[in-house]
Structure formats: structure tokens, C-alpha cells
Design a protein around this nucleic acid. Structure first.
Lengths: 330, 330
DNA sequence: CTGAAAGCGCTTACAG
DNA sequence: CTGAAAGCGCTTACAG
């Protein structure tokens, strides 16, 4: 059952068993053989909880994401998992729900379980959470997040610039009445809105608050937002939807209104999801290198866990605009 | 740092600290107070690894899914997580890649970490895996899986019947040349193909192997499959795509061929994803109650973990056909 | 190269 | 109600 039993059965000490198990020290071929045989025969499986306790390391990382099932986070998760798995790390996914204090519950859980590191992808309004995180001594990486209260390394795109570029692209196509649909609850919203305004400014287009509508990153909320936007400003010629998942709903709403894309309204998305080229029409989008963001987040977390000192605090990944069929020149 | 320090600081025994921490026995208000104060002051966080070791239980479940990022599995994960989280369980997601023996690596990992239970969603051709699982004594639930070698409880729909119903629906619409696009690698494939054939049989339509094409559950593989299918049988009037994710690619391919949906080709999906009503045209589909499947899988796993004996071996969840705009009568 | 023993941080009969 | 002590299953200086 335990390492002790194997030791007895093989006629060696537990130290020796541990050594052949972990290959941490040379063991004579003779004893090694005996141990291996005993293990094989008993179907012994080492207990990594005990191991982790003495090692003070359990090869586990926490990924804290919002509850809403966003395709974006799904991709981040898979790229993070891919990299961490190679380094033999397990991931505990924490999906923060709309419950009071839920994020705190998760963070406490991760701390109690002595998680080696955390990738944070969820913002909160509760400052206590951040102070808890700061005091915890656990390595943390901010993925697609910019939280002034937290001085951990952050991996993200330049949201302001990306929104500026996207808006400028639409302007360059001749659009002047450009709707802006964004997801609420993240600081990225403000940055993107800022980029949108800056681009408008630069072209001498005055900002119209009626052209801005918020949503919650889901397809359905994109649909609702577009319906609202169209009611407020039926004369718009383009929408910049700052989330591709919401764009899907936006396109559905536009069709529902009896309008065509891009003939009547151009749609520009944001994220660059795999599904974009399969939508009708194919969706033009400000593309984030999502997998790269996930990969780098994992990489940097790993370095921090291994005691490396991360000097650069911001890792900006380059975005790009991918042109497809949902935007046209007017 | 440890419970010992708190005990010293509070002037009580570690037993007492443990008791107020876990509320496992009454502790006088007096001592309780002292302990709480010491904990507060020191910012002590209990070590759950040590706790789990003596409890022989760590409130962790493993979810083994294929590497391919399927929307289907994403939904299962979120519903499983939702339920398990309420019971204070953590989830370790194991995404089996195309590496030799990767599933075995994950199962060993879960066993070494003394995971309380496993939800299996991945089939393998390696029989050793199954025998390992059988011998492990870990509670296992088969989610949307039917593995004869494993006598664990299984939660799924009746795939044969569902495919039979879907095919019958298309036949009832007047279609006779019905393509069948399926994902490879799962026993569900065979069952669904069987249901398709049975429905054909019943209506006296002879089975044409040229109408059957396989894919890999991704959007792109759906596109490729449709292109191949259309080349083989340009005179088909309907396709039954046994995965909604693949349907998205299929619809894209049909448009690429210059054909209209459903005027030229009707498309019937399978799964009933949230995105279906937002596609162009909205996708008719054989709907699985995916969240319900996830929920029940988690529920049954929890019962098994708590020592309950599960008598029913198969839990069949009811499917249904959701009619939208992608199929038409001819 | 090998083993005896301490220690990782908890829980829980057992005795008082 | 409270505490001393054994035990959970490992790793690793330390000594040989």
C-alpha cells in the first residue's frame, strides 16, 4: 500500500525505494531490480500528496476566469494547458460565478491547496481580493488584464491601440457613423473605448454616446446590444464590436432587422476567433494572438515558480487587422 | 506558519486549533476566540495537502476529454464544474493529446494524486488503459461514452435512436439522397451510422456508402468532409451532420460551392449547441441535453465517491429534434 | 551505494 | 471541553 510495504517486500529501506522511484540517486542494479519487481507485483502507485507535502510543491496552477463561457477563455485555457502539461503541471480551473465573494473563495482554496502559481483572467471590484493576492506570495500572472493595484507581470495586447486601429480602419473605408459595442466589467472596455474615441478625434468625427452600447460578452448579449444600437441610431453604417463572440449575435440582429452585411452595415469584430472565417459573411476582425498570449502567460508563470525574477512587467503582444467580407468601403 | 505555531500563539493544543478550524467538535468560546485571533493576526492559511493526506480524500475530480477543443466538451465541463464546485470539489482537466500513451500518463497522474473520482469522455484503443482503470478502485463515470470493457455507470443519449430520428425527419421532408457526415474515433459514430441505416432501411432507401464521409469534429474538418461528399454525390439534397461544430464547416462548404441552404441542400445538425440559432441559416439539429448530461455525470460521480452503490448502469437522457431554417421539404 | 530517523502539517481516537 | 501522541506516506540530510 505505501512505500513502506514495497520496501519490506523488496527487503530494502524506504529511502531506497524512494530513490529508484524518483531517480534521485544511483541505486545498485541489484536493489533497483528488486524494488521494481515489488512495485510491479503489488500495483503500487506512489502517493503524490505525501510527496508534495515534503517537497512543498505540488505542480498545480490555478486559472481564474469568469464564469461566462467565452470562446476566448477557452482558447487561453487550452494553450495554457498545453504548455503547463509539458512541464508536468496540473491546472485547476476556477470559474468565478456571480456569487458574493466567489473569487475570494477560489483564491483561498488555491492558497489552502498550496497551488504553485495563478494565472488571473478575472477582474473584481473587491479590493480585498487583490491585497490577499499580494500578501500570498504565490506567483501570479495577469493574462489579458491590467490591474493597477497588482504589480504582477501582465501579458496582453495594447487594447487602446487595437481599438484605435480598428476604428481607423473603418474610417478609412469611409464610415463616419460607427457604432461601438463592448462587453462590460473589464478595464479593457475603457481602453478600447478610448482608442475608439481617439481615432474618431483624429478624423474630426465627433463622439456620439448614443453609438456606444454595452453587453456581456455572450452571443445573445451581442444581439440585444445591436438591436438597441440600431434603434438609437438607425443611420449608422458600421459597427465595431469589441468581441467576436458578441459579433455573432450582432450579425444575427442585423439580419433580423432585414439589413445586409456589409451592404447596409459593416461589422468589424475583435479577437480573431477560429470561427470567424466560417461565419456569414466571413468576419473581419482585430485579431489578438490568443494562443500566444496563453502560451506566454504560462511560460512566465513557470519562470516565476522556478524563482526567476521577471524584470519586464508588461508583455505586449502584437495585434493585427484581418480583412474579410463583413466590412465594405462606402 | 503551521497549525503548531497558531496553537503556541493561542496557548492551546493543535487539536483545539484543528477543531475550531474545521468545526468538527465544540470548543469553548474562550479558546475559540483565542485561536481565531491568532489565525487572523498571523494570516495563517491551513494546508489542505496535509489535511487530505490524513483524510485520504482531496476533493478533486479528473475530467478526461479529447484534446480537440470541442464546444460540446466545453459545455460538459462547465456544467460538471458548476455542480462539483458546489460540493467543494476541484477539477483537473486532462486533455488527451495525440501523443503515444498520453491517456495512460493522465490516468497515472490522477491515481498518484489520489483523485477522488474520474469523469471519462475519451475513448482509447489501448486496452491497457481500461484494465488500469478497472483495477484502480477510483469511481469512474462514462460521460457520453459506451465502453463495453468498462462496467461503470454511463450517462448518454441513445445515439442509434437519435440518428434514426434525425434521418427519419429528413426522409419525412421528402429527402432520399441524404449525406451522412460523422466524426471518427468514437463508438458513437457506429451507433449513429447504424441509426441512419435503419431509418433508410425502414423507408426502403438503399444505403450508399458514397454518401458517408468522416471528419474529426472540428469546423474545418466539417468543411473538408462536405467538399468531399459533394464531389462524390452532387445530387444529394440533404446532409445529416452528426456534430454541430462540423455543421458550421459544412454550411460554409455548401456556400463555397455556390449552393444555398436549404433551397439546394438541407442541413441537419447534431448536438444542439447554443450557437445554432445564430447561424445563417439557423441550424436545425438533433438536440442533446448537454448540460443535463454533464450535471448527471457529476451527480452520479459524487454519489459513487460517497460510497453509494449505483444500481442503474445506463442513464439515457432524452434527445429531441429542434426545427429551424436549415432544412426544407422537397 | 544504503539505511535509520527526523520532519512535512495535519486529524483523531483515547484518556482525562 | 481539552491535550498528548500516533499516524497519514513520503523525502532527505546524515552517518556509515
Amino acid at each position: 500500500m505505501g512505500i513502506k510495504d514495497i520496501a519490506d517486500k523488496a527487503g530494502v529501506s524506504v529511502a531506497t525505494v524512494s530513490r529508484v522511484l524518483n531517480e534521485t540517486k544511483h541505486v545498485s542494479a541489484n536493489l533497483r531490480e528488486k524494488v521494481l519487481k515489488a512495485i510491479e507485483k503489488d500495483g503500487y502507485v506512489a502517493n503524490h500528496m505525501a510527496r508534495s507535502m515534503v517537497l512543498k510543491k505540488n505542480f498545480t496552477a490555478g486559472l481564474i476566469i469568469p464564469h461566462v463561457s467565452e470562446m476566448y477563455h477557452q482558447i487561453i485555457f487550452s494553450s495554457v494547458e498545453e504548455l503547463l502539461e509539458k512541464a508536468n503541471y496540473k491546472i485547476i480551473v476556477c470559474r468565478v460565478k456571480d456569487q458574493p465573494n466567489h473569487e475570494k473563495i477560489y483564491i483561498d482554496m488555491l492558497m489552502q491547496n498550496r497551488t504553485d502559481g495563478i494565472i488571473l483572467m478575472h477582474e473584481t471590484t473587491n479590493p480585498e481580493i487583490y491585497s490577499r493576492l499580494r500578501k500570498s506570495n504565490i506567483p501570479v500572472v495577469l493574462c489579458s488584464l491590467d490591474i493597477p493595484e497588482l504589480s504582477f507581470p501582465q501579458i496582453c495586447i495594447d487594447d487602446t491601440q487595437a481599438a484605435f486601429d480598428g476604428t481607423s480602419y473603418l474610417i478609412s473605408l469611409g464610415h463616419r457613423k460607427i457604432g461601438f459595442i463592448c462587453g462590460e466589467g473589464y478595464s479593457a472596455r475603457d481602453k478600447r473605448l478610448e482608442g475608439y474615441q481617439q481615432a474618431l478625434d483624429k478624423s474630426g468625427i465627433s463622439f456620439d454616446p448614443n453609438l456606444v452600447v454595452g453587453g456581456h460578452y455572450t452571443i445573445e448579449s451581442g444581439r440585444t446590444a445591436m438591436l438597441e444600437l440600431y434603434e438609437q441610431c438607425p443611420d449608422l453604417t458600421a459597427v465595431f464590436v469589441v468581441s467576436d463572440e458578441m459579433s455573432i449575435g450582432v450579425m444575427s440582429a442585423i439580419r433580423q432587422c432585414g439589413l445586409r452585411i456589409p451592404e447596409d452595415i459593416s461589422v468589424l469584430g475583435f479577437d480573431g476567433l477560429d470561427i470567424d472565417p466560417y461565419l456569414t459573411p466571413t468576419l473581419s476582425s482585430v485579431q489578438q494572438p490568443i494562443r500566444e498570449i496563453g502560451r506566454q502567460s504560462a511560460e512566465i508563470l513557470l519562470k516565476m515558480i522556478n524563482g526567476e525574477d521577471i524584470v519586464r512587467k508588461k508583455f505586449i503582444i502584437t495585434h493585427s487587422i484581418v480583412e474579410r467580407d463583413s466590412c465594405r468601403r462606402i
